[in-house]
Amino acid sequence: MKKGTKKFLFLSVATLAGMYAYNQFVASTSTKKNMLPTKNGSYYSWKQGNVFYTKTGTGDPVLLIHDTNSASSSVEWSKISKRLQKKHTVYTMDLLGCGLSDKPGLSYTNYMYVQLITAFIKDIIKSKTSVVASNLSSSFVIMANQLDASIIDKMIFINPVSFHSMDAMPDQQSKLKQTIINLPLVGTFIYNLLMNPKRIDRQFRFIYYCRPQLISSKTKDAYYEAAHMDNSNGKYLYSSLLGNYMNIDLRHAVKKITKPVSFIISSDIKANYKTAQEYRKLNSNIDITYVSNCKLYPQLENPEKVYQIIENKLSN
């Protein structure tokens, strides 16, 4: 064997060994703190995997659905659910691929989550329920209402996703990105590099919160842990987002909504006003409430204000 070939093979093996070691390090250290709460938790055995959910309180049912990314979980609602449970039966769920739910190696699509939400309401809640959803997950609720309007009462969306951001469809380039992240060793290594504590901290400081001084280290730790549960298999959800498999045209479904729907919009996100008005042009019945000094997740940054708005919409 030529000297150059030996050197190449040695470097290749060393690189792969380094990737494996890093992946093992992340797997063994990222979930040590046990930051994802399990109190009042159960599992719903769905056709694609087990889905973690909680049920608290008494009264009319309310389902809280967190935003959809591989670091998300029902921790997003930790400050809201304990307030709502005083007057409502509150359900939270970790969407498939998130938090304490299973993370199967499949392509996650908008319609898959529509099916999950529909099945969860029918099988677990078993009555018509109001739904509060965040950002991208608002699209699943809109389409679930389109699929079966009889299971959803009122809908409240916090910073719903824009139509424009949902326009891109899977193409050769996006499918390649998905394929790379889905690779067993290399893809996991790339995902682990991307979903590091510093990056999650930057997301909180520049995307999730308007006032960084309010960010809780426990909340950041919970997001980091959620991203790496089940040996970082959240990468399959991440790759599906890169592949544009979550996107869908919502416009027709928004036009057809006839029940109460309310938006809670953070005015500190510049594009939000335009997004809200685009929805209202299609459906003039949409009620919009603006909150200031908040960014993507006002339910974490200003929970008392968001709770008051939600409670007001649910009681009217």
Rank of each mutant, 00 (worst) to 15 (best):
W46K: 11
E301W: 02
T188G: 05
H252D: 15
Q85D: 10
N23L: 05
F163Q: 04
T129G: 07
S12V: 10
K47M: 09
I124A: 04
Y209L: 08
A276W: 03
Y20P: 00
L100C: 00
I288H: 05
I156S: 07
P298S: 11
K87V: 03
L9C: 14
F189T: 04
I310A: 06
K39F: 12
Y53H: 01
K259G: 10
I125P: 03
S81E: 11
S174H: 14
N145F: 07
K47V: 13
N110F: 00
E225V: 07
N50W: 05
G57W: 08
T109A: 10
I257D: 04
F25C: 00
D268L: 02
T109H: 07
N50Q: 13
S81L: 09
V161K: 01
A276K: 04
Q173E: 15
K6C: 13
I121C: 01
L96M: 13
S78F: 09
A222W: 02
N244P: 01
E225C: 08
M229V: 12
T5Y: 07
L95E: 13
H252Q: 15
A276E: 05
L36C: 09
S134D: 15
D102S: 14
K198P: 00
A21F: 14
K7I: 15
N247Q: 12
T129K: 06
I264E: 09
E311T: 00
I190Q: 04
F10A: 12
G97R: 03
R202T: 13
G105D: 06
H164I: 11
L16R: 00
N145Q: 10
F263P: 01
M169H: 07
T29P: 02
M112Q: 11
I288W: 04
F163S: 05
K218V: 03
N247V: 12
A21W: 12
K218D: 13
V141P: 00
K55E: 12
K295S: 10
N182I: 04
I151T: 04
T38M: 14
G59P: 06
A168K: 13
N110M: 05
K39S: 15
K6L: 15
H66F: 07
D102C: 13
D94K: 01
T92C: 02
S30C: 04
S292C: 08
N231W: 04
H228R: 07
K255Y: 05
K220C: 12
V62M: 06
S174T: 15
P303T: 08
S137C: 01
K177Q: 15
